[in-house]
Design a protein around this nucleic acid. Structure first.
Lengths: 350, 350
DNA sequence: CAGGCCGTTGACAACGTTGTCTAACCGTTA
DNA sequence: TAACGGTTAGACAACGTTGTCAACGGCCTG
């Protein structure tokens, strides 16, 4: 029975060849095949050639999973990446920068989207853990990352990106969100604005809170009564931001300058300003750069982040940890940068 | 010696727990643990509870790699995705759509960027094969995919996206590139243009050739002398397209309408038109939609592709193949759509 | 009360690889 | 010639899991 079904399989699907097959064809032991395939030294020229020829002939492909099961350290040469969404251009650039750094080491990347959902964060981390990734790079959203990282994985390298983690002591690579917010405030103030407004993302997102804090603190330092500054939050999509901007413009005492703390919010604000014919009247500074910002009318002044630097740094950190770096975890901050394009330099309209 | 080093390891790094550990703690056999963890039937309520408690207590995580090594069919529950670049928004949307469809089945995705480099295509396909992915979804760039897919992987589900493969008979999901190109031509012709130009991507990219073909064939059908239509190709980035557009506008007999066959090319053309003060004079239709196209002045008319539908279809195909669908491979075509926004409806300027 | 059946359970081998260890072989040297 | 060292080679166990199968106990049936 067993014999029959095995034979059937062998004939029907001609099983994928294993090292044993290669060894048989080359007339050597399987360990010799292993040595050749893994480019280990200590195999004679003659046998190396024979093995390689057999590999070629059978089209043999090493099974890394089987190998890493036995290998000391159990390296799978794969790492897990958890992003807000792979469809998000900012995430995409980080992803690419990480890939470039890790591919050079032969590491493959699992990628997944969290949608800023704490439940997904937990489920996807678990899924990657079950696949025994050598490291984890993630954008946290759950309130705490402590119960997400099982204690037994404490030796698993983890690097957080874009947002700092809570309840776990690990490396993080982030933008200088508060400083960037302050930079936006200072820029608008320097152009004479005194009636400003803040439009921001969900308050459970750490970066949104930081940007708001930096913005408002800078205003306070300059003597603006912060209680009078409209701060409309929890705008998670373009439509919400669009509505909020229209309401702001229609209010009794409309702002002469707006700081939008995230791309989709900036888009919503731009659209509302355009519809209201106020693109050239109300100043706008957005957090995070985007394609075609310079092609708008006026060009959109932004606090640009550097996703490629965030990704590169995160990759360097995870590689260092994988290589055994035991130093104290810490947070790396990638500076943001003001890019002047017109919308942020409009003077107060009255 | 061995005992010593084992004990050392056990104490220093407290090895990740295995089923054996869980079984010992719960006082059951390891097969019972396996059954509980994999939610197989045939385990009494009492033992199930004891096993789950032990799993909890040890923070046990199943090792999927070890499991798939033994499991019949060797499913790894992972699939490989090869895109032009994960940083490319079009690719990102496809990626996301695929992820959404596959995550529901517990499949994880390896993602990698090809950069339209045939060598990378080969290397990355091999890397995914070594990891024994259950399926491969890729955007081909090499001249032939035949030697990329080893014969022994013929039972490996493969779906091509965005471009059709050569030298291998497999499922593909693509946009109607030629029809889209023709649609652009017809649209511009219907607005009275007779002096049109084509700006296109590298000619080794199949979609670029198809878009060009569809565009020119439609012009020919309408009696335009195709030999007089400037077709500037091999524009792979924005800067090249920008230069090409300027040259076009400065030529003796400049076109009154431009068809740009790819996003970066469209951006370059837009920028050149703006600099030349011709945004409202020379009509422009781009292939592929992009964020903020409606916010430009004028809005940019495009032939929109549907990356989310391409991704969804590709995911459905790979799942069907994984589930054993043996039907003849074929190509699914996702229709493109003309989106009218202003730039494509400008009349001939003289 | 014997026999049979069913629901549970766990011992065991096997998946494809790599680490360990011993064997065989070669050429040197005493 | 015997002993030795260095190189090459392969037999074997083990990694953590799942498929197979036999054994157990309880219950029903005749």
């Amino acid at each position: 029975m067993t014999t029959l079904s095995n034979r059937y399989q062998a004939e029907a699907a001609k099983q994928r060849p294993t090292m044993r097959d290669v060894a048989a064809l080359a007339g050597v032991g399987i360990k010799t095949v292993s040595r050749v395939v893994n480019e280990e030294p200590g195999v004679s020229e003659a046998k190396t050639v024979r093995v390689l020829r057999a590999v070629e002939q059978l089209n043999y492909q090493l099974d890394m999973a089987a190998g890493s099961l036995r290998r000391t350290g159990r390296r799978t040469l794969s790492i897990g990446l958890l992003l807000p969404s792979v469809a998000n251009p900012f995430s995409g650039e980080i992803h690419r920068a990480i890939e470039d750094a890790l591919a050079a080491r032969g590491l493959a990347m699992f990628a997944a989207s969290l949608d800023d959902d704490p439940e997904r964060e937990k489920a996807l981390v678990a899924a990657f853990l079950r696949r025994r990734v050598d490291g984890l790079i993630l954008t946290p959203i759950a309130k705490s990352q402590a119960h997400v990282i099982p204690e037994h994985s404490q030796d698993l390298p983890v690097v957080f990106i874009d947002r700092e983690p809570n309840g776990i002591d690990a490396d993080a690579v982030v933008s200088d969100n508060a400083t960037g917010g302050a930079r936006a405030a200072a820029h608008l103030l320097s152009h004479g604005h005194t009636r400003l407004a803040y439009l921001g993302d969900r308050t459970d997102i750490q970066t949104a809170r930081e940007r708001r804090r930096g913005f408002l603190e800078e205003l306070a330092r300059s003597g603006i009564a912060v209680s009078d500054v409209p701060a409309i939050e929890n705008l998670h999509d373009e439509e919400a931001a669009h509505r909020a901007t229209h309401e702001l413009l229609a209010s009794r005492n409309p702002p002469t300058a707006i700081f939008s703390s995230q791309n989709l919010v900036t888009f919503g604000a731009m659209r509302a300003l355009k519809e209201a014919g106020a693109s050239h009247k109300v100043a706008l500074v957005g957090f995070d750069d985007f394609a075609l910002a310079d092609m708008m009318e006026p060009g959109i002044t932004v606090i640009a982040q550097h996703p490629e630097r965030i990704g590169k740094l995160a990759a360097e950190r995870i590689l260092a940890r994988i290589d055994g770096d035991q130093s104290q975890p810490s947070t790396w901050v990638v500076p943001s940068e003001l890019i002047v394009r017109g919308s942020g330099e409009l003077p107060p309209s009255d």
